[in-house]
Simulated assay, not measured.
Amino acid sequence: MKISAGRILVIFGVIHTIFASIVFSDFLVAMIENGLVNAVKDEPSSNFAVHWFMLSGYFWMITGYLIHYITDTLRSPLPRFLGFFILIFGAVAVVLQPISGAWVFVPFGLYLVYKQKSSGG
């Protein structure tokens, strides 16, 4: 099995979501026990953090599957701007929160930019 850019991003999303499930397990259980409807308020709290942590992991999985579908199923190159946007996302996230896993998106974005440049995309 070839490790493609899409699969790498899916792996990032899965690891992110599993990590959140482990680290925030107490908050997840409390949210489920108290009811999920309106469980996350517009105020900084652990429920708010776990909510965004889980959703961002899920978002990366969706994006990874889309990249995989475009590149491996349709055999179409990705637009180069996608690599630049992921690179910028990673750079901004690292500046805002240096001690995080967001740094993985910097080399991933560079990889996409370089790959599209070398393949003419």
Rank of each mutant, 00 (worst) to 15 (best):
L36F: 05
W52M: 04
P77V: 02
L36D: 08
Q116A: 08
F89Y: 07
Y58G: 12
L87W: 04
V113E: 00
W52V: 05
N38E: 05
V10S: 15
H51F: 06
F12S: 02
K115C: 01
Q116H: 04
V10R: 15
S25R: 08
F12A: 04
W52T: 03
F48Y: 12
V37A: 01
A20S: 15
G120D: 13
V40R: 10
A49R: 05
R75I: 06
A5M: 11
P98T: 02
G120N: 13
K115D: 12
R80S: 11
F108A: 00
L28F: 14
V37M: 05
F53M: 09
V50Q: 02
M31S: 10
I18M: 12
S46R: 07
H51T: 03
L112T: 01
V94A: 01
V14C: 09
G90D: 02
G57V: 14
D26Y: 11
G101Q: 08
L36P: 08
A5F: 13
I67M: 10
I86R: 13
F48L: 12
R80H: 05
G90T: 04
E33W: 05
G6W: 12
I70P: 11
F53A: 10
V29Y: 09
V29T: 05
S100F: 01
G13V: 05
S118E: 01
V40H: 05
V113I: 13
G101D: 05
Y65P: 07
I88C: 13
Q116S: 11
G90E: 02
S21R: 12
D72G: 07
I22Y: 10
G109R: 15
